[in-house]
């Protein structure tokens, strides 16, 4: 199987408003794709459609993941099949502890793969190790999910979940926005530690800076619900220098 994800002519609406207007994107195992684009261009919409959030109406096109129709599957099944979305704005869930969520998610995925639930002590060891890796204090494990976390702590927590769940397709929706350099390195390390020939990443970002730490194979520019340009890592540098205006103008003229 040489294609992990194939998006073809994807159109989607939110609240009756067309947001995605024909996205085509093919992601192969092992690749890192960066998606950049102005505010409101549809980056989070694309991420949410892939993760299966309700309220997004796909009006045209297909998404094939590991040879299966992804859009047919409920969100939890997508997750169990290895799709992971690191949210742009992770929600706070008071009363559900971080560690419990991790364990429930980890076991749900294991059951899906026909494996036994994990032994509590082994799991704790794994979680503690990964918690150190993302440079979070262990006490965060016992707090409510994201409850009272700072912006940077929330993003680290998303990376912690990703590191533990070991997904196959990781979609990071602006996980790097608003982070200081230390936290940015944590995110980059989290991604780089997981990089493997089977796994792929879609990094939604506004800033070239992240790509100094994670070298993308492809960079795409999303504007007005379409991918208007694709290139290699140098495109990100060009965008950083020139902004999006020239591309949007070129796309409009085309």
């Amino acid at each position: 199987m040489n294609t992990l994800l194939r998006i073809e002519n994807l159109h989607a609406r939110v609240d009756g408003k067309a947001i995605l207007k024909g996205i085509d994107l093919t992601v192969k195992p092992g690749e890192v794709h960066a998606i950049m684009g102005p505010n409101g261009s549809g980056k989070s919409t694309l991420s949410n459609v892939l993760a299966g959030r309700s309220g997004y109406e796909v009006t045209e096109g297909t998404v094939t993941y590991r040879g299966q129709n992804l859009l047919d599957q409920p969100p939890e099944q997508r997750a169990r099949e290895g799709v992971f979305l690191a949210f742009q704005y992770p929600v706070e869930i008071p009363g559900v502890s971080n560690i419990y969520l991790l364990k429930a998610a980890y076991n749900a995925i294991r059951r899906h793969r026909g494996l036994n639930e994990v032994d509590a002590l082994d799991f704790l060891k794994l979680v503690k190790e990964k918690t150190r890796m993302v440079d979070l204090d262990e006490q965060f494990l016992y707090r409510g999910v994201n409850e009272g976390f700072s912006g940077g702590e929330k993003k680290r927590n998303e990376i912690l979940q990703m590191a533990i769940l070991e997904p196959t397709l990781c979609i990071l929706d602006e996980t790097d926005s608003g982070l200081d350099i230390d936290a940015l390195k944590v995110v980059a390390n989290g991604v780089n530690a997981l990089r493997s020939p089977e796994r792929a990443f879609i990094l939604v970002t506004h800033y070239q800076r992240l790509l100094d730490y994670i070298k993308p194979d492809h960079v795409h520019v999303l504007a007005h619900g379409r991918i208007v340009r694709s290139g290699d890592a140098s495109l990100a540098h060009e965008l950083e220098r020139k902004g999006y205006g020239w591309i949007e103008a070129a796309a409009a003229g085309a």
Partner: peptide, 27 residues
Amino acid sequence: DSVFYLESRGIDAATAREMLTFAFAAE
């Protein structure tokens, strides 16, 4: 949004709702 967050981590909808309901009371 909370239900979706849990679902996006592999937890089925019914369990997600139960977790959140319990959490509401457990607080």
